Amino acid sequence: MRPLSPAFASAAAREASTLATCWIVTRRDGVHLGFTAHDRPILLDGVTCQPHLGADTGAQEGGEGLAPSTAEILGALDAAGLDAADLSAGLYDGATVETWRVDWTEPEARHLLMSGTLGEVVRDGATFRAEVRGPAAALSVPVGRLYQHLCDADLGDARCGVDLAPHSATATLARLDGAARIVLADLAAAPGAFARGRLVVSGGEAVGALRHIRAHRVVAGEHVLDLWEGAPGGLAPGDPLDLVGGCDKTFATCRDRFANLLNFRGFPHMPGTDWITSYPVKGDRNDGTRRTG
């Protein structure tokens, strides 16, 4: 437990409370954003914590030992604060969050309640609910390789080694067909070439927005992409897109499509459950040379 400073302890002991909760969010690009549950701005470490987001503390859960702790922030989306377009563009992915209890009459009297990283952000109309994950959450992230059939490298990274240039293309947005489906113009590619790939908007109001592609198909001569997330805000017909192909991470795809078998980072010959749980049968060949995967 963190010790209380004398100034904060004195403020907390008052009969009439002057304490408020403040949050300071620091994005990976160095941008700072502050907001508070108080009804007036509070200056904290040079960051003005604004009250206009209507923020408040949601559920909090503390873990024992090395178990991760989590907390929630509830508030309203606002162009001057947490903007829906910025959230969709991933600008807040991995941002650090500090939660402070502050004496609003003397902000230097404060106490750090929790620090962590911004996790899942759920939007519901004009409101948001953000998860704050404590430092121990990093201990639950897998480290090292997994023993599995599928490759654990990303297409084109240093461990994969595939040249992405032959598997990339540019296209123009013809139209939006629902929240997470886009139709492309002037794309020359085989159906499925960009499934599990990604697109980056290279022009227009949504420039720089990245989306992951779930499926790629050709319908009535038009290339249709289904996205895992909704289309970026501000995306409009005529906007240019940069596309990069994807990989289903199977042994066959690595061998047949990318001719990259020597760099396959999975274990395709790993015995399957049927082989592991098998037993000798009279009359069968039980010398260990046959297995099912």
Rank of each mutant, 00 (worst) to 15 (best):
D56A: 15
G30T: 08
A84M: 03
A84T: 00
D56Q: 13
G46A: 03
L82T: 08
P68Q: 02
G94E: 06
A76N: 14
W23T: 04
A67V: 11
L87E: 03
E61S: 15
A79C: 12
C22Q: 09
W23G: 04
A59M: 12
S88G: 14
L91I: 06
Q50P: 01
L44R: 02
V47S: 06
G34D: 03
D93M: 12
A95Y: 07
A59V: 13
H32M: 14
D78K: 11
G94P: 02
V47L: 00
Q60N: 14
G62M: 08
R40A: 15
G58K: 07
G65V: 05
A85N: 00
D56E: 15
L53H: 09
F35W: 06
A71R: 08
A80H: 07
A85G: 10
T57N: 12
G62R: 07
G65K: 02
A95D: 04
L44W: 01
G90Y: 03
P68R: 00
L44C: 10
P68W: 11
D86Q: 03
S69C: 05
T21L: 11
H38E: 00
L91D: 08
G75M: 01
D86A: 13
T21E: 08
E72N: 02
A84Q: 13
G34C: 03
G94N: 05
L43Y: 04
G94K: 04
S69W: 07
R28N: 04
D39E: 13
E72W: 06
T70V: 14
I24N: 01
P51Y: 02
T36I: 12
L66F: 13
L53T: 00
E64Y: 05
G30M: 10
G75W: 00
G62S: 00
A95E: 06
Q50L: 04
L53G: 07
S88F: 00
L91E: 01
E61I: 13
A85V: 05
D56H: 14
L87K: 03
G62T: 11
G62L: 12
G65F: 13
S88V: 06
Q60C: 14
L66H: 12
L44A: 05
G54T: 08
G54R: 09
P68H: 06
G30C: 11
L33S: 07
I42M: 07
I42L: 12
A59C: 10
D45Q: 08
L77M: 12
G30K: 10
A84D: 09
E72I: 05
D29F: 04
I42K: 00
L43S: 15
H38K: 05
I24C: 02
D83A: 15
V47F: 08
G65D: 00
G75C: 01
A80V: 08
A85L: 07
L77E: 02
T21I: 12
A55T: 10
T96H: 11
D93K: 12
A59D: 14
P51K: 10
G63L: 05
A67Y: 10
P41Y: 06
A84G: 00
D39M: 11
D78M: 07
A95L: 02
A85K: 03
V25S: 01
R27L: 03
S69A: 10
H52W: 15
I24H: 01
D39L: 14
A76S: 14
V47Q: 03
G81I: 13
G30S: 00
G58W: 02
W23F: 06
R40V: 13
L77A: 04
G75Q: 00
G81L: 09
A89L: 08
L33Y: 04
T21W: 02
